[in-house]
């Protein structure tokens, strides 16, 4: 069972704003899924290696060379707030 306080903590980490009511609903729904997922505890995984990449691919290397993206305007135009060619955001510090 996951508490409302835990949900608030996780929501902060995930950067999702949540109302009191949403927090409560989220706690119930997350608890149900986590309880169901718990069936994995019955599997004995001693000595089993984890799988991160399924076809066992190795690292692929390339030249560490820079190349320009060909549509910089397209990216600049997506900025939610713009000043000249800069993305305007709230002060970070």
């Amino acid at each position: 069972m996951i508490t409302k306080k835990e949900v608030q903590h996780i929501a902060g980490l995930a950067r999702i704003g949540m109302s009191e009511q949403e927090t409560e609903k989220m706690a119930t729904e997350m608890s149900a899924v986590l309880e169901w997922i718990d069936q994995l505890k019955e599997v004995n995984v001693d000595g089993v290696e984890p799988t991160a990449h399924i076809t066992g691919m190795e690292n692929r290397l390339r030249q560490d060379a820079q190349s320009d993206f060909d549509n910089q305007t397209g990216i600049v135009e997506l900025f939610p707030e713009r000043k000249d060619n800069y993305d305007k955001v709230k002060s970070v510090l």
Partner: peptide, 19 residues
């Protein structure tokens, strides 16, 4: 932005993953 931009199912999965 995330509160109002994302739907309930997406938020639930982000929350489960973050947890």
């Amino acid at each position: 932005s995330r509160r109002f931009g994302l739907g309930a199912e997406v938020k639930r999965r982000i929350m489960l993953g973050t947890y």
